[in-house]
Design a protein around this nucleic acid. Structure first.
Lengths: 186, 186
DNA sequence: CGAAACGTTGACCGTTTTCAATTACAGTGG
DNA sequence: CCACTGTAATTGAAAACGGTCAACGTTTCG
């Protein structure tokens, strides 16, 4: 059993973990329609929650990285409504559903932490959606800067920022170059 | 006091409403930094939650329409971290914070409904963000169709769909025309 | 009937994507 | 220590796509 320290909530939840599960890239964690027996905490790696389209293509509903809880809404449904597939090798902490429900029912502190986590997630993803609804690269980068006062991540991860705001790495580099040229911040 | 029937949760919450508040377009509901004394339920109209940028421009963090709760994360903070401004004339139901907190603490059923609401919101907005990260109009419309099996809304609201997936009404109409031409569904 | 908002389509223009080629850099093994 | 390899960063050029502007048809509603 591994302690996930991303947040007080995940630390607490990981204590309820039953076992650990490892996935290779492209491994399937669950399919739509499967009964929900467990929640999962992403320890490392990344998963994609997708809905398979009739034609064979897939619609990504969520990307889950380290520290993410899969899937919060599981607590209120009987079966999954999407597929979960490892995008890279990943390690998960398995949280038996019944154990989690019992813990939430008996521990108001934990329940409150869970609710708070969800409220923050709602805020985060709504803000992300608003950034993505901006139409120009300049606007998106500016918005991202405002919401990430910590500044740019170390090189090697810039392209992840680009992906986060829905533009190509090239477009992102060019925008950064433009800002450097103008002396307008990094 | 008005009953909001959008969902069981909002119906329940609206019963805890203290009073009703009307806003004209551009009226300010609260500013970042204001102490959080109440939550709000949007009865009609629409509000924008924004963060003011140093330069005078504004970053929209969320659009709240009828049935929305403003702002869920308020329950876990002392002061607002964004501004709320009416985008159109709006009517709100004022929910005193203390009353809500007491209700959540004493009514596990309500607390559970709140958590479920948040979990669903997280799902919804994550899916919305993924749609917005698609780059072409065709992909976005296809994705929207998959997630809205109910099909297109009646005319007069198509442009709202366009806004929802981050494209101009014109681009949306053209995509629909393209699909009609191909006989590929409405 | 007239006004207002939405739907529809065309043309043009700007931005971004895409493709491609080059440089920088970290980690690996000889 | 250095060549070697893979990934990221950088920059250029061309093509595609969607936004914008504009004109007109359609629907609704007072």
């Amino acid at each position: 059993m591994i302690a996930i320290m991303s947040s007080p909530l995940t630390a607490e939840l990981s204590r309820l973990g039953e076992r650990e599960q490892k996935l290779a890239a492209n491994d399937v964690l669950f399919r739509a329609g499967d009964p929900i027996l467990s929640l999962f905490l992403v320890v490392s790696g990344a998963l994609l929650l997708t809905r398979s389209l009739p034609h064979g293509s897939e619609l990504v509903l969520q990307r889950a990285g380290p520290g993410a809880i899969l899937a919060e809404a599981s607590l209120f449904a009987q079966s999954y409504h999407c597929d979960a597939i490892a995008a890279q090798p990943a390690v998960l902490c398995v949280l038996p559903r019944l154990r989690i429900e019992a813990a939430l029912a008996s521990d108001p502190e934990l329940a409150r932490a869970m609710t708070r986590h969800l409220a923050q997630e709602v805020q985060r993803s709504r803000a992300a959606a608003e950034i993505l609804s901006l139409k120009t690269v300049t606007e998106r980068v500016t918005a991202w800067m405002v919401l990430n006062e910590s500044g740019l991540p170390p090189k090697g991860r810039w392209r992840h920022v680009a992906a986060e705001i829905g533009i190509t790495p090239e477009a992102f580099y060019r925008e950064l170059a433009r800002r450097r040229a103008k002396g307008q911040g990094v």
